[in-house]
Nucleic acid binder design. Structure first.
Lengths: 332, 332
DNA sequence: CACCAAAATGGTTACGTATTCATTTCTTTA
DNA sequence: TAAAGAAATGAATACGTAACCATTTTGGTG
């Protein structure tokens, strides 16, 4: 390993000067710069970013704790976040959290020196929030929020659930069902509230409507769907709490020979890129803004890092994206 | 920032002992361990992994240079790689390379101390290969390989192109076309060779068949597809060099009111997870092994890091996965 | 109790850089 | 030409840890 000391010796200057050539060349005589650069070339010297991090107390690393990529939402957000961070000259440590490994990820992350953390895995009540505050580095949640109500960028989940439900109701569907995730996550809780509110406005009691609160892995969604098929009165419209669930429901429907929207209407929430593919063409509700939640969050995180902001509390408006998995209820 | 020195002072021991408590507690008296642990608790001490990296010359970081996630192949491989690396207690620095940013990514990566590098972006002739060898740390390519023919895990690209082409030929299609990428990438080059060979076996000259060598972004694929539609004799089957291209072709077909496979047969290569979705159900050719290329490569990379192997040169066999985007040619 | 080996602990240094402060060299001006 | 100020360079140090070597303490044995 060739160090700046070696370069210094080879160029006949001090290590300090080598450091200056790399960081503040305007403070060093052009001729010396030349001499040092030549030595750097000849020795094939590469500065040690670890040593630099140690002395500067800056790692240039952002930690991202994302959900798994089989969920297309995280495909979109991970893309946006990684590209943004790299474009800013930082590095990204990526983790894909699931129920199984989340705890060990948290341990690893808390022991890693990063300049900031962006994550989507937080529960509404989660000790992690306070551990992160103790760490003393900036962090932000996207998609979900904590009950402390700080450091998050989310969509208006209640409104999203409301708009989705209203859409299928207005198409004449009266027999709905809901497939969502655990309510410890603010996302699922809020969206279900919107669902219930829309029903209530039509004089329907949400408790009378079949609801499935499932984990978001393939198997559990399939189990929920099997349950759904066993219902006495099959719903004509399935409201999924996320596009990921909706797209998996589509898959399960087609696998069993059902047609969508003929046999089931399906609507999601998130408006992920994949939902726009014409083979999917999923009706959904999503953010009004041009950029996705991941982008908005990482942008805000950098503002915090640069002390331009301190506390982010951002709720983005949503709108309906009608596509081909919903249609008028012919049975009316 | 509380350091191990602070802990030492607070516990009334030396910094060396604190270090030992954390790394080799079996060498320290239980009572002392207890004392130190208590001090660690009380001061909320977290070891500085940067300082540790500096002295140990190990960062615990693997750098991944992947393609963008709008290509579903990289969704699968990134998932496998990140999860594998994290499970092994390492961190992953992720980059998504495109034509635009690849150069700056290389610069960043070469100046970053990582324990190893895994990448898919290498060209067949690429200076990067030699720069990486100079770096002196283990690296591996997945999907593509370099002409030096070292450090790679790939599928049998020629065979893949051959099987895909043969499949549509055997279904009675005689008017084919090829949509692939630049031949500086070993993947595209090999697959096209297989395409040409299959045609030749049927007495067809590959040069007489419409071929499109496009960049793999949406726009360029669309341009190629528009060209295709202008052909005097429209092909009945489209052979795409990757599932990513094939899935985008599907999208373009449906967008224009064509039906697949009625109006066009479409076949891809890679057998990405998304191709299995029943809304897509893409006929494709893919790896015979259970695990994807990313997984196989990262597994091998760790073997190299642990000195169990030195040079990886692995070509995986492939097979056909017939699904619903191909069918017998009715026009015969 | 004396002695010795083993166990436990501590002092010091190295890792490779940026930074602080001191010193030398150069340039300008009276 | 001398003095003063600016520009350029260098020496020493800090960052926080692990590792090496030296020293002290402990426990067992004759």
């Amino acid at each position: 390993m060739v160090s700046s000391k070696d370069v210094a010796k080879h160029a006949g200057v001090s290590q300090t000067t080598v450091s200056r050539v790399l960081n503040t060349p305007e403070l060093v005589k052009p001729k010396t710069v030349e001499k040092v650069m030549k030595a750097i070339e000849e020795l094939n010297y590469i500065p040690n970013d670890i040593a630099r991090s140690l002395v500067q107390k800056k790692t240039g690393i952002i930690t991202l704790i994302s959900g798994p990529l089989h969920n297309p939402f995280f495909v979109d957000t991970t893309t946006a976040i990684v590209n943004y961070v790299n474009a800013r000259g930082y590095k990204v440590n990526v983790y894909f959290g699931t129920e199984d490994n989340l705890h060990s990820i948290y341990n690893a992350v808390l022991e890693t020196k990063a300049d900031a953390i962006i994550l989507s895995s937080m529960l509404y009540q989660d000790d992690l929030f306070f551990k992160l505050e103790k760490l003393g580095i900036p962090f932000i949640m996207f998609n979900r929020k904590h009950q402390e109500n700080r450091h998050f960028v989310e969509i208006d989940n209640v409104q999203a659930g409301y708009l989705a439900t209203n859409h299928v109701l207005s198409l004449g569907h009266q027999s709905l069902c809901w497939i969502g995730g655990p309510h410890q996550m603010s996302t699922f809780y809020g969206r279900y509230q919107g669902f219930a509110r829309a029903l209530k406005e039509q004089g329907i009691d949400a408790k009378s409507v079949p609801t499935f609160f499932t984990n978001t892995n393939k198997q559990d969604i399939e189990s929920a769907f099997e349950e759904l098929l066993k219902l006495d009165k099959r719903p004509t419209a399935i409201c999924a709490a996320t596009d990921a669930i909706a797209i998996e429901i589509l898959n399960l429907c087609l696998e069993r020979g059902f047609q969508v929207p003929r046999d089931f209407n399906v609507i999601g929430i998130d408006n992920v890129e994949l939902s726009k593919h014409h083979s999917i063409s999923l009706t959904t509700v999503g953010i009004t803004a041009e950029e996705n939640l991941g982008f908005l969050a990482i942008e805000k995180l950098f503002e915090v890092m640069e002390k331009k902001s301190t506390c982010i509390q951002q709720t983005e408006s949503v709108k309906l994206f009608p596509r081909n998995t919903t249609c008028k209820n012919e049975l009316i």
